[in-house]
Nucleic acid binder design. Structure first.
Length: 277
DNA sequence: CTAAGTACCTGTCCGC
DNA sequence: TGCGGACAGGTACTTA
């Protein structure tokens, strides 16, 4: 469900609420959500530890503990992390309950149970290839027009598919990929290597603008996404193409089209996004 | 190596 | 109204 902006919104709130608090107990309602180590090993690594920081890398949330261990969460499609000051879960799909030292509760909920939860000792991030091999993320110093140009130049895959490849760029998901390509005026089926330097520069700017706007608006909520307070985002009110099939382009009035690219639903304006070359 | 297909799950929506 | 199939903010694994 959440892409980088949504995870960042969750991170900011949890960092504020959890920092300095100690995990007193952990109730594991669905053991298979814990991918590493075993559920028992996970409990041993988490219980009794205080949270020092909540960080993020791409779509991963990283809770750094006072013994150097990290609790890692990837929410995939329907995962959510909600902080409950009153200590009461309101999630009918709660999978993990972290009881904190002040009686509050951190609830990991996940309808489709596709999310992945890990606990890592220091230096063990290599176990998570999705994390250790992730490319630079939008709005970071490593993500530059030159980097994008280089990444694009080697690949024949559709540009939309490349944007979703986390090893190339970390954090972009289906919504923000479609929105970025619209803003850059590039058709999602264009071969990555066919982009000119100018188009690459436009795409670079578009990605950063779209991701920043998503964060400013508190994320995008269609169905499942909620922030650390259990509230919705607002960016769905500002989308140009995503989930707007048949509706009129806000720029030119042409109906938005939906196709499949790399197995993912893909929305674009056939007028504003130039044809495939 | 890249690419495509499949698997993991449950809920919702659309068309018949 | 009821049913079946397609589809959903994602990634990892297998096969070609």
């Amino acid at each position: 469900m959440p892409e980088m902006p949504e995870v960042e919104i969750i991170r900011r709130y949890l960092d504020q609420q959890l920092t300095g608090h100690r995990i007193m107990n952990l109730e594991i309602l669905l053991p298979r959500q814990i991918k590493w180590p075993t559920p028992e090993g996970y409990r041993a690594m988490a219980i009794g530890r205080a949270v020092e920081h909540v960080k993020r890398r791409g779509k991963y949330l990283l809770m750094e503990l006072d013994n150097g261990n990290e609790l890692v969460f990837h929410l995939r499609m329907t995962g959510r992390l909600v902080y409950e000051p009153e200590g009461q879960s309101h999630d009918s799909y709660a999978r993990l309950l972290f009881q904190l030292d002040d009686g509050s509760l951190l609830v990991y909920g996940d309808t489709r149970t596709l999310g992945a939860v890990y606990a890592l000792p220091p230096g063990e991030r290599w176990r998570l290839h999705g994390l250790s091999e992730m490319g630079p993320e939008p709005l970071s110093a490593d993500f530059t027009p030159d980097y994008l140009l280089e990444a694009v130049s080697k690949r024949r895959t559709p540009i939309k598919t490349l944007l979703l490849n986390q090893n190339v760029i970390g954090g972009i998901g289906n919504i923000y990929a479609d929105e970025s390509l619209f803003l850059a005026g590039i058709h999602p089926l264009r071969s990555a290597m066919s982009l000119s330097a100018t188009e690459c520069q436009r795409l670079f700017t578009a990605i950063n603008r779209v991701i920043a706007a998503g964060i400013e608006d508190g994320g995008t909520t269609f169905r499942d996404y909620q922030n650390g307070e259990g509230k919705q985002g607002h960016h769905q009110d500002h989308l140009m193409v995503y989930n707007r099939k048949g509706e009129l382009c806000r720029n030119c009035g042409t109906p938005i089209e939906k196709i499949t690219v790399g197995g993912r639903g893909t929305h674009f304006c056939p007028h504003c996004q130039e044809a495939v070359q």
